[in-house]
Design a protein around this nucleic acid. Structure first.
Lengths: 233, 233
DNA sequence: ACCTGAACACCGTTCAAGT
DNA sequence: ACCTGAACACCGTTCAAGT
């Protein structure tokens, strides 16, 4: 119906670059600070304006709407992801390092989980990582579209695994954590499934963070093994 | 700080079950209808009340807050996921079927992507799927915590892969899709990376849905191969 | 060129009051 | 037991007006 073309912040020239007023950089930095402190719900145009000592709506001069601001902020997240040059360490070590870096950046900025996979990743930092990842998988031996497929398999795993971790962490941060109470609750939900109840006796609920770390590595190794297997055939 | 215990709709008795007034089932059904029509942003307590011919705030008698309503709705999503009995078809066929079913349910209810991984999955339908998945991976040969790890590897992949698909689809639905314009835009973003530009000539942008389907299968096979490899060692 | 304030059309949630 | 309406404290965004 709507004839609007798809667009993105990255395709609009920023308003005059430098000059007197506020800059995009300043706004983005303040936004990230607010996000780290208060989460995604804590970022409102009004609060951000106030933080910058500006009127509630003055940000609309720099940014067409809130989503553009989020696109900007989102690319900063990509900027924090680090990864060795695949040519130097080999593809598998590079892939492992990238996966861990993605996970740590997400855990450090829990709000980023709500942006990942939802916003177009067309900023310069996202591009840099995407390029490195492509080179990594070509080095491994993938060709044509398989390079893309391998890349999205890896990122899908990392993302899909880390997001629930973040949700769990934040639910736990908002509440008093009590391993036994938790166990009792889950046991109640699982009461009809003897096979699930067996899990209750394990130490899953005593040190959830440690378990999460082991689980992440287990899956990562599996995914990389699976990709490696495709190269062999 | 807050001493509140973690809780969930599933741990509060529903208000008197049957009886005259509205029922949870009725409310949940209306909520899903609204969600399918207007997406997550389209679901407000006021609109849902109106749809049920009730005052804006009468829903608060059935549900403590909006998140509880979402937990209820979320479990319906799990209820739509189908999966053969692993004992009958073998673990790998069952895992493949489950993965595809998850993907299809998510694509059918795009709003569910915002709930998956974010809300605790403690409802009866979620439990049923979780139990079947556990039995599936035990049948495969996993033991102890590895059963969990294998399960969360699979769901992480499906979820992490499908969510960006949904975001892409909805961005495209809101805009006029033009393969060449899209190509030009991405090319511009990738201008510094010759390796990425090479991709532009492929047919990625001509039939995105078909490519997504192939990509999903590629990754799924890889993940299952990787899990299978762990069993061998 | 940059910023402001008022205004519009929304939210979720609480709560005293009604039947 | 169930539902209502008014009220509170918020949202994103538009826009005419100011400097």
């Amino acid at each position: 119906m709507s004839a609007k073309q798809f667009t993105s912040v990255w395709f609009r020239e920023p308003r005059k670059a430098a000059s007197p007023g506020r800059s995009r950089e300043e706004i983005v930095a303040a936004a990230i600070e607010l996000l780290d402190q208060e989460g995604l719900d804590g970022l409102s145009m009004r609060k951000l304006g106030a933080k910058l000592g500006a009127g509630a709506t003055s940000l609309y001069w720099y940014v067409a709407h809130k989503d553009e601001l989020l696109e900007l902020v989102y690319d900063e997240v990509w900027g924090e992801m680090t990864m060795p040059e695949p040519e130097e360490v080999g593809w598998r070590a590079a892939a492992t390092a990238l996966a861990y870096s993605m996970r740590h950046v997400m855990l450090r900025h829990p709000w980023s989980a709500d942006l990942l996979g939802r916003l177009p990743a067309l900023g310069p930092n996202a591009m840099r990582v995407a390029d490195r990842m492509r080179r990594m998988f070509r080095l491994a031996g993938f060709e044509g579209m398989d390079v893309d497929y391998a890349g999205s398999t890896l990122t899908a795993y990392v993302y899909g695994k880390t997001l629930p971790e973040i949700a769990w962490n934040s639910a736990m941060a908002d509440h008093e954590y009590d391993a036994d109470a938790m166990r009792a609750m889950v046991a109640r939900a699982a009461k009809d499934y003897p096979d699930m109840l067996e899990r209750m006796n394990m130490d899953v609920y005593d040190d959830p963070r440690a378990i999460q770390a082991v689980a992440f590595d287990f899956g990562l190794v599996s995914v990389l093994d699976g990709l490696e297997r495709r190269l062999a055939t």
